[in-house]
Amino acid sequence: MAQAIGTTSAIPQASRSARWRALLREMWKHRVDYLFISPFFIVFLVFGVYPMLWGFRLSLSRWAGGQRPMEWVGLNNYIGLLTNDPLLGKAFLNTMMLLGWILPTGLAFALVVAVMLNVRRLRGRGIFRTLYFLPFVTSGVIVAIVFSQFLDKNYGWVNLLLGKIGIPPVPWLVEAIPAQISVTLLLHWMGSGTNILIFLGALQAIDRELYEAAEIDGANAVQSFFRITVPMLRPVLLFMIITATIGLINLYAQVKLLTNGGPQNNTYTMFMRMMDLIAGNRFGEGAALGFIMGAIILVITFVQLRLLRSWWTVEGNLKS
């Protein structure tokens, strides 16, 4: 019996080693091809995988920087952040709130503008496209500084113009809701250009015959939009929702420069908290927060994928 077991386990082992040899032979045969694709993988390993693994190790350690060794603390950094951080809760809520506001409004705005720009009769479409795309190529730092000057409560141009039409000054950057609106406006202004262009490209790829057929069947413009345009944009929409979610959870530079997380931490994001921890020499906790944010992104993305897949059938029809 024992012999039989030994024999049966030896067979797969031999088969495995044969497979390995075959694989290596095959790789050697294509060595030149592998050489060509190797630069990407080398760069990816050195600058992508290694820092990520190092960062994960850091998130499980206490480290004072420099050449001091890391001290293993297990999950303490994660537990401390999730149970005993005076600012992370607020930062999480702010990030989710900004995500909840900016994602749907930004995509809806970009889609509407793209549909308008896709009208064949529209004159000067190229000019509009350039104008909408222009903010994207402008430095985010400069834009944030200019916005902060425009939106200054006492001396900003926006309140100056509002004053001309009898509207009292709005505390754009010094009250919670106006500050969140200011951040939203800034991000829409900067991000809409690319979103519009991507939507426009996808819209132009939709076969016109679908609309013509729908028209013959008696569908009006709204029905065509929801029954043809939106379902046909599903892959693009999915891509944009996921990339925008990742971008918004990692929101930092624009908010840092526009409101510095204020007023009263009402625009203080998770990324800002992470940066504060790192700048404050709490490298382990900063790394742990980075991985917590990564986990949040994964969960949200998974939910988005599941929801969007269940909302639309494979044929591209919206489920009732």
Binding site: G262, Q264, N281
Partner: peptide, 22 residues
């Protein structure tokens, strides 16, 4: 000390923002 920096009393920071203006 480092705590002075954390407190934010030197001109701002998340803890200062959280309590001072309210």
């Amino acid at each position: 000390t480092p705590a002075y920096g954390l407190s934010g009393i030197a001109g701002g920071g998340p803890l200062y923002d959280k309590y001072f203006i309210p």
